[in-house]
Simulated scan of single mutants.
Amino acid sequence: MIRPAKLGEMTDIIAITKACAAQLIKNNIFQWSPSYPTISIFENDIQRKELYVMEIDEKPVGTIVISTHMDQEYIPVKWLTPSYNNLYIHRLAVHPDHQKKGYAQQLMSYAENQGRANKYASIRLDTFSQNKRNQLFYEIRGYQKLGDIYFPKQSIDHFHCYELVL
């Protein structure tokens, strides 16, 4: 079941992202750091009603942010659609104990269905340039790679931007 996250679930949400970060580091992918994502970022996501969780047996096992807010870093990207009616995906994570079960696919399908149902032009996101698995994940779903951006506080490496026209 996918539903809006609650502030009282912050311990579970942080545990998911910390476990994902540890798994990424184990695979020499330095995408998430101790300074990202933080509790305050997730609290803000919840306050804006943009953070969703996937729960199994009444416990969150995955997260996704579905936002209408375009980060400043995205401005220089040559997007496929005008920048006024789009959804942005951030912080998609499934606890490593629950990966490879189709849960990330379900979270993305949920976001895409929300986008279509609410007549958004597209879904935009970024993924770490060193995370080939994520790139393939989005490309198989039909997302087009458009350009690169940087988040200097997060990594010295760049992030690829993708868009799916709805």
Rank of each mutant, 00 (worst) to 15 (best):
Y52L: 01
L107A: 07
R133M: 07
R91C: 02
Y120M: 10
M10D: 11
S33H: 12
T11W: 00
N28R: 13
I41R: 07
L87N: 00
L107M: 15
I29R: 04
V53G: 04
T11E: 15
N131S: 12
R141L: 08
K100I: 09
M1G: 11
P76R: 10
R133N: 11
H160W: 14
Y143N: 05
F159S: 10
S67C: 10
Y110I: 02
K18T: 08
V165F: 01
I16W: 05
L24A: 01
G147T: 03
E163V: 02
A5Q: 04
T68G: 13
Y88S: 02
I25R: 08
N86T: 08
I123W: 09
F151E: 06
E73L: 07
T11S: 14
P152E: 04
S33E: 11
L164G: 03
R91M: 03
I25D: 08
F137Y: 06
A22D: 14
L87R: 06
L92E: 03
R124C: 12
L24C: 04
S67N: 13
D126K: 07
Q114E: 07
L80S: 11
H90F: 06
S129V: 12
L92T: 09
K18N: 09
N118W: 03
D157A: 12
H95K: 02
R141D: 01
M54V: 00
P96C: 09
Y36L: 08
G62W: 10
T17P: 00
S35V: 10
